[in-house]
Design a protein around this nucleic acid. Sequence first.
DNA 1: CCAACTGTATTAGTCATATAATACAGTCAA
DNA 2: TTGACTGTATTATATGACTAATACAGTTGG
Lengths: 129, 129
Amino acid sequence: MISFDAFKPTDGTPIYLQVLLYIKRGAVAGTIHDGDELPSRRVLSALLGINPNTVQKAFHMLEEEDLIESQAGAKSVMKLSEEKITKLREDLLKENIRNITGSLRQMGISREEALRLIDRYWEEEGTEQ
Amino acid sequence: MISFDAFKPTDGTPIYLQVLLYIKRGAVAGTIHDGDELPSRRVLSALLGINPNTVQKAFHMLEEEDLIESQAGAKSVMKLSEEKITKLREDLLKENIRNITGSLRQMGISREEALRLIDRYWEEEGTEQ
DNA sequence: CCAACTGTATTAGTCATATAATACAGTCAA
DNA sequence: TTGACTGTATTATATGACTAATACAGTTGG
């Protein structure tokens, strides 16, 4: 059963997207595997303190992307492959890094300083995971 | 008069926040200075193709943060100081870098790989600004 | 079998974002 | 002065995100 212990709601990003991203990132990180069972909509919503419909929205999108498999009555299951994970990794990286480099350059931060800042922040909060 | 030529609406971030951030980042980058005139609400909204109320919301928040000064009938003006800029810089950096390091670590990316990725992406789209 | 759990669907309400259409009073330059 | 521009305010509408309360049919384990 996939664990949501490390799930931390952050900024103003829609909750259903955060749930969706948490699972995608876990798949990329290798902490979530093909065939892994997901918590039920009701259980996960109670666990995260959010509405079952919000979890359903995230799961429904994962289903549409063919990353999980659901059938009425049974728990949903991860449906991963090497190709899917590779593609996920590329998509997530592109999305993340594009944003940060754009913002930092708009602030007039040089590449050297950007690298220095990333390095420093990684050190500061880099023990867990 | 502050230029919005480099303004590019990006992801799902609320438009009023993007306008607000554009100005804050410009102040940090040194392309927007104390005393600079802002375009009027109506002109800027037409320029960006958005609603005047959306611009008003951004400007109103800047006013509340004491970063601009407005009086009915006249154009709004930037109200910056060294301390304000320093604080802005810290806040924006914290907000940006926290997000990226968190996401990348959730994906199981190592610090070395993160630095390598940032370095590469900077190269790819780093000519403008 | 059957009770307790699943996924799925529907309807309703709240809140934030964004647009639209005005209205009014203050400023500023010709 | 006066007309065209300012900031500011109000009301209405639409959409997306989130919550709430149900309902129903399929599955699974004891």
